[in-house]
Design a protein around this nucleic acid. Sequence first.
RNA 1: GGUCCCAUCGUCUAGCGGUUAGGACGCUGGCCUCUCACGCCGGUAACGUGGGUUCGAGUCCCACUGGGAUCACCA
Length: 485
Amino acid sequence: MSNAKPRLRFAPSPTGYLHIGGVRTALFNWLWARKTGGTFVLRIEDTDQERSTPENEAVILRELRWLGLEWDEGPEVGGAHGPYRQMERLALYGEFADQLVERGAAYRCTCTKEELDAQREALKARDAKAVFRYPGTCRDHKGPKPDRPWVLRLKAPTSGAVTYEDLVFGEVTTPNSAQQDAVLVRADGVPLYNFGAVVDDITMGITLVARGRDHMVNTPIQILLYEALGRTPPRFAHLPMMLAPDGTKLSKRHGAVSVGEYRDKGIAPAALLNYLVRFGWSFGDQEVFSVAQLVDAFDWARCGKGDGKFDAKKLAAIAFEHLKRPELTSLEAYADTVAPFLEKRGLPGVDRGLLLAAIPHVRERAQTLVDAAEGLDFLFRERPVYDEKAVKKFLVPEKASHLGALREVIASSPDFTRAGLEAHVVAWLGSRSLELKDVAQPVRVGLTGRSVSPGVFEVLELLGRDRSLDRLDHALSLLAAAGGA
RNA sequence: GGUCCCAUCGUCUAGCGGUUAGGACGCUGGCCUCUCACGCCGGUAACGUGGGUUCGAGUCCCACUGGGAUCACCA
């Protein structure tokens, strides 16, 4: 083999949102390109004109960028092998189609879809279980292009077999008898998947094709095309399937399958990639990886063959790990990623210093960025949004009898820091034979509006003396109202 | 049905002839504790079946069973 840098590609079809399974495929290609210093190409396979839309393409590009899976060549970034949309490469397919005919590996077929459908129906009537295969009516057609509409068909070999060495699955052999004279190019000159992909992979210099196992059945026919064109096939690596929890194909009805949904749920890109990479790839006992670590550790030899089932709980756990660990999500990065979620709560452009100071206290109790924004919310309002249930439960005479006194104790603290406040308050509690747990909840609700928050001393320090006392005063007024005073 | 592929706890997986079969998620008992969490300690649970090969099989071979992919002028 040459030591040329590998060229890999991700070739989505813009027929819908970016599927989570597609992201996994893109990720593996991207990782290998980054690890080896190779090239990651993005190609848009938009030959299904019925379903492809520019809007879908735009979404795919946006999601890939959000994930950090930047492409070296492709739409919007260009490259030496463009254009990168198949519908802009039509002339190329024509050239290769002619080559195939010249070499006797394909032929022009003038059977109409109607004729074929009729034959298919007839066969069905005779034998319901029979599978229709093109009978080869035009197989020996030669000479110039017909004056009737025609499609290009593969002249599939009837004997022999195709064998290739899959980077993941090892040696795979498929008898040529399994092939049929598949349509390569439609009557309008638009290629079908197998032909378009091969022509593009050839002309784009792709050296390694990594894709889902569902494409494994296409590989022999593609290799046949490479050989017919006198080209060396690339290496292939097939990835096991990612299935739904019930073992069926992962789809909308099983929950979120589009990348956008995970973004909206507050899952960080690196966390999603970390979760996805563990499908069909492992690195000893390590579960949590930064993207840089993945680039470093990734290897086809560590890929498994068994299909996997999507587990939302595990994803949540991985996402949490990323949010929790400063080495994976720095303070600054955390602040940047949570900001949009605060904005969604009506808190745009919050005080950066306060945000940075607060994050260490919320990051270990926020599973997602949505949770984090919820936990941070109280800091950035004049007064917190008081949770009705929490107020009814804790800002009542039976529970908050010491709140007034505590307000004064806090106000008199000489040092309004977490440690200073704690020392001061605990000393007072000791003198009254009280424990912190006897008085903390009403204070917490008063300060944050909620019964769940970081420690009360942390909250006091974050809020500062003025805002803290204002909130405690407000809590006392709520208490008075509840006590019917 | 044809062709291809796969098979370790419920789930993701480690294991590359000799292990008390390990880790993670989940579930669960306890500790810590101002709430909720985090954290820490412990528990639960797996090699689909049958044949071989071998001194010795989760690891190698075969069969079976089970599961998946695909059989379009979709990709």
